[in-house]
Structure formats: structure tokens, C-alpha cells
Design a protein around this nucleic acid. Structure first.
Lengths: 340, 340
DNA sequence: CTGAAAGCGCTTACAG
DNA sequence: CTGAAAGCGCTTACAG
């Protein structure tokens, strides 16, 4: 209420110059111990807090990192965000979040991306899928950036191998004896199919082909990702010859599907095998077989990489491959004999 | 790469003063249309982006809102955050997020809260539970603040009536005929019991008492919130006389419990009735009866309230009560006759 | 409608 | 080890 104390107030009452206050408070070298103590004491008494914008303007450092990600209300984003937040707050950085879910939001973000240059010291891009021209834009701006969810040269990145993981999931179903294996989620030619989902679809197709199975279009079930999408997706199955197994592009899709299947009397795990993707918190509760990706760890490692880049002023170009693990649960099993 | 363009560059090449550039670009009155156009054109050509810190320092406005919330990896927080982000980005505000989950984090936040004065134009506190001295601190700082999740005078707030909602949930179970109704979640004397959870517990106790039932300590199952906690909580039930119904303090707890129960051969909905709290995305898939709170809407309304306060420079003290709805699904039903 | 100038509160060479 | 001073890039009365 009495007005903020400024560095000048501290300097005056401590009987030193503002330069000395600045150095003392930031623990810079070349300050006499006694001086440092006195300044700290006075600053404390006055309740002095440096004005972020002023120091930022003078130093060029913002001590904040930008997080650009899809929907904040999905499980995946929350996990990554939590991991990142943890590392950054330990390192003394603030976190500014930007949603880039809808095309409109992405556009808005890209328009403003130039302004980020003066707003953040670094950037984490989660599932952002920059196009080449956006990459140029980002490169021009020159903010240290880490990409999560895919590899985008020349930026450093952390990502799983979606194609390989999907291939493994489907091969697993093949190994169980399934022949009619469907795929469910956002699929081409839907415009929303992201590079991540495309890679998973390709892995599916390749595994099918390798097993001499036809990834026919009948086995492709296009539905939005998410719980509702999965529930709706179940209704797409009710045609002539249903699949005996389904590879779902996300756990949420799989769980939505499973719940609708159960309502319809379909026994998941025998009538219909389901494999998901993510290892959502509730996947275990659902008995869902899935491809586990260490989402939270990805966030942590991404943030750590960014801190290293900023701290040491180095530019990384490494594309880190994060392992994915098949977690077998009760939603998958051999096909029921006598059927199919 | 050629170095950022500054307002001075724009002014020089447009042949006007920086003051005029500033006014023109921010659509302030008293700029000749022709001038405005020319300035805009030049700014565009030069790729000019105002330096956030400079304008912030000069104007005192940061155009960013602080979000303080618990764990970013839980469903509730993600929903609120998504709602808020939406409103703020439409209004042209940035969002800075601060985790205040662990006591350590809360402490760190409170220590730094003074510095927020110069970092954000407003604050949203989600389930933060400020103590009186913290409130004073916040009041001293004088940042427009909206509280979500509880009512904290004199700050404006949005919250459900946790006690009433819990009361309703338990009365519903009573109405079904249950007598041994347990409560599960984080319970006193556990130090982590938040005001929110306490209110739910009180609602439970009151409903029990009103029904002439004893909320005995045997019926209190203390377990961490979350899926794992619920699963672990099931094992606590296996004692002498198990409850026929359970009120869980969160849907995640309820779902964890249900999955473990199913594994153990307990039929949820008849052997054991379960009512949760939240209406999680997956509650429907689980057939979970629950108290639905409009989480995302709470975020949206909170952000809108904050925008109004900031935009119109008014201080609100309203404590907005948000309605909660009982959603009946298959996890609850009358107790099995012949038992209990 | 426009400009000159002060000022926002720091940081950082530079000089001592 | 310390201080004087320039400078970061804007905004905002004030004067015209």
C-alpha cells in the first residue's frame, strides 16, 4: 500500500549505490560480505522485490519458458505439463502456457511468435507439428527450443517411435492369432490426422502387410480421439464382419470403446481384443493392454534439456528416442475359436 | 537475425515520432487515418513486435494472468486450466502457471507472491486454501484475484457447496436403503485434508446423522485421492462387516476402487454401491454414479469475472455458488437383500 | 493530430 | 570492492 520499494530505496537506506544492491542481491562476485549482508537485511526489511519487467528489459533475460501444447484438458498434456513445471520451478523459471489446439489457435500463436522473442527465454513445443515455413520463422527468432512428440530437424527433440510402437502393438495381436485387426482413431483422409497419428497408422499397415493381412479400408474406423470418440467408434463396428481385435490410437478412445462394448454385451478380451496407446492412469483399472509411453518423464527430460541449452548457451540438435513398452492386460487375448 | 526492429526504427522509417507509432499501433484515438495506415504498413514490413518488458515497465500492465493450482496432472486442474486459457487467450492475455501442490511449492509460491505484483495483472487461485495471513499478504499486494474452489472472503470466488453436495450424495444412498455407508478419500486426522474435502466429509456425517446412522470411524477409509488410492482403498474394506455403499471423495478414487472390486469378484452396483465426485470424463464409461460439478465452466466463469474486474477496474466480492448435479449410473443401486 | 521529453526500475560495462 | 552513468524500449502526460 505504501508503494513498492525500489532498488533505489534499498540503496539509499543501505547507504550504497544501486549497482551494489543489484550485485549483492543477485549474489554476484565482488561484493564485500558485510555489504552483502547489510543490503540483504535492508531489502528484507523494506520488502523489496525486484521489478521483473525492469530487470528483464535491462538484462534481456525473462526467466520464463513458453509451453505450447494441445488441449490442456487431455491426459497427455497434463502429464507433460506437470513434468515440465516441476523442473522449471526448481530452476527458478516461470512457465507461460499457450494453447495451440485448434487451427485458429495455432494461427494466432504463429502470428505472435515473433513477440515471444522478448517474452520467453526458451520454448517447449508439444505435438505442435510445425510446417517448414514455421520452422524458418522459429529459427529466425532464435529462441532455444525443444520439441516434444516428434523429431523436427534441426531442433532438439524427444519422441517415441510411433510407427515402431504401433507396429509392435499390431504384431502382438497378430501373434495372438488375430487376422481381422482394425484400427480406430483419427485417420486419413481426415484433415486432422497429425504426423503422430499418421505414423501409428503406418505402423499398423506395415504390421498387417508383413503378416500377409490386408489393412483394408473396412478395418479403418475413423472417430475422434477421446472417450466419446471411442464410444461412438463402437457403433461403427456393427457391420458385416466385425474385427476380432482393434488397435486404438489412444487409451481414451480404447476406454470409451470398451465401455460401450461392455454395454452391448461384447466381452472385451475374448469377443474383441483391444490395444490402446499411452498407458493412461486409468488403463490399468480398465484392464487395457496398451503401449506405454513415459509421458511425464518426457516432459521432465525435455525441460532439463532446455535448461542445459539455456544455462550453457549451447544448441542441441539431438533427436532423443524414448522407449515404449507393451503392457499386457486383460483387454487382449486370442480370438474366440469358431468365429471369424 | 538482423536484430529486432524497435519502435524507433518504425518511427524513423515512417517519418513520425515514436509517440505516434505507439498510439497508432495500439489503436488509440487522435491519430490521422493516413498516419495510422502508414505506421501499420511500416511496422509490418519491418516485422516490428513491441518488446513486452518495455511496454510493461512503462505502462505497468503485464497482460498476463497468473494461475495457481494444484497438480497439473489431475483431471480437475486440466479442466479448469483449459477453461481459463480459452477466455484469456481470447482477451489477449498470457497465462503464467504456478504449481502449489506440495507444502514446499505452496511455501515457495507464497514467498514469491510479492514479486507477482509486477509480473501479473491478475491472479486465479484454484484450491489454494489461503490462510488468513496469506490473505493479508495477497490483499496488501492488491492484485485482482479470483478464487476458485472455495469461498474466501473478501475475495470474489466460485465454488460448489461441497457440504451440501456430499450430503445429497449420501442421502441418495440412504434413500436406496443403505445403512452401512462408508466414505473414502483423504480424511482427517490426515494433515492433507483440505477444506474442500473436510466439507464433503461433514456433509457425509450430517447426512448419516440425519438418517439416524452412525458415521462410525470404521466406515472411514482413508486413502490418497486418485486412481491408485482408490485401488488401495478397496483392500481396506475387507474387514468384518464391509459397507454396502461407499461415497468416494473423487471419481478417480471411485474408479480405482471399482476396478479392484471387480477383480475381487465384487459386483459394483449390487454387492457394493459407489458414488463418486466430479463427473470425470471416464465416469460414464465406468457407469459411475457421481456428483457432477461443471469444472470447465467454473474456469471459464472465473476467468470472465477476472477480466471484468481488470477491464472495469472494479473489485468484486461476490461468492458465486455453482450448482452440482447428481448423475445416476449403474454403480449404485439398492443393497442386496439378505445381507447386512 | 503530433512531437519532445521524462520516466518506468533495473543491469552492466567502465573507471577507479 | 564500489559508484556514476548509459541504456534497455516502451508509454504518457504535456504542450502545441
Amino acid at each position: 500500500m505504501a508503494g513498492r520499494a525500489t532498488i533505489e530505496d534499498v540503496a539509499r537506506t543501505a547507504g550504497v549505490s544501486v549497482a551494489t544492491v543489484s550485485r549483492a542481491l543477485r549474489n554476484m562476485p565482488n561484493v564485500a560480505p558485510a555489504t552483502r549482508e547489510r543490503v540483504a537485511l535492508v531489502a528484507d526489511q523494506l520488502g523489496y522485490e525486484p521489478h521483473a519487467a525492469a530487470s528483464w528489459l535491462a538484462s534481456g533475460r525473462t526467466m520464463t519458458i513458453g509451453f505450447v501444447g494441445p488441449y490442456f484438458d487431455i491426459w497427455y498434456t497434463g502429464q507433460v505439463l506437470a513434468g515440465i513445471e516441476n523442473v522449471l520451478s526448481d530452476a527458478g523459471y516461470d512457465l507461460a502456457v499457450y494453447a495451440a489446439d485448434t487451427p485458429a489457435n495455432r494461427g494466432r500463436f504463429l502470428e505472435r511468435v515473433g513477440s515471444l522473442q522478448t517474452r520467453v527465454d526458451g520454448l517447449v513445443l508439444v505435438d505442435f507439428h510445425p510446417e517448414p515455413r514455421h520452422l524458418h520463422r522459429l529459427a529466425d527468432i532464435g529462441i532455444p527450443t525443444v520439441v516434444i512428440g516428434e523429431h523436427v530437424e534441426p531442433l532438439p527433440s524427444l519422441a517415441i517411435d510411433n510407427e515402431e510402437a504401433a507396429h509392435r502393438a499390431v504384431s502382438y495381436l497378430v501373434g495372438l492369432g488375430h487376422r481381422r485387426i482394425g484400427i480406430m482413431g483419427e485417420l486419413e483422409p481426415h484433415p486432422e490426422e497429425s504426423p503422430v497419428l499418421r505414423a501409428r497408422r503406418l505402423g499398423y499397415e506395415q504390421a498387417m502387410t508383413e503378416a500377409a493381412l490386408e489393412p483394408s479400408s473396412e478395418l479403418r474406423y475413423h472417430t475422434p480421439l477421446g472417450v466419446e470418440g471411442g464410444a461412438a467408434g463402437f457403433d461403427l463396428l456393427g457391420t458385416a464382419v466385425p474385427p476380432t481385435a482393434l488397435f486404438c490410437l489412444s487409451d481414451e478412445t480404447a476406454m470409451g470403446l470398451m465401455s460401450r462394448a461392455a454395454q452391448a454385451g461384447v466381452v472385451v478380451g475374448s469377443d474383441l481384443s483391444v490395444v490402446g496407446f499411452d498407458d493412461h492412469d486409468l488403463a490399468d483399472a480398465f484392464g487395457l493392454t496398451t503401449m506405454r509411453q513415459p509421458v511425464r518423464e518426457i516432459g521432465i527430460r525435455g525441460a532439463e534439456l532446455l535448461m542445459t541449452m539455456i544455462g550453457e548457451g549451447v544448441t542441441s540438435h539431438e533427436a532423443i528416442r524414448v522407449p515404449v513398452e507393451l503392457v499386457e492386460r486383460s483387454s487382449s487375448g486370442p480370438p474366440v475359436t469358431g468365429r471369424n
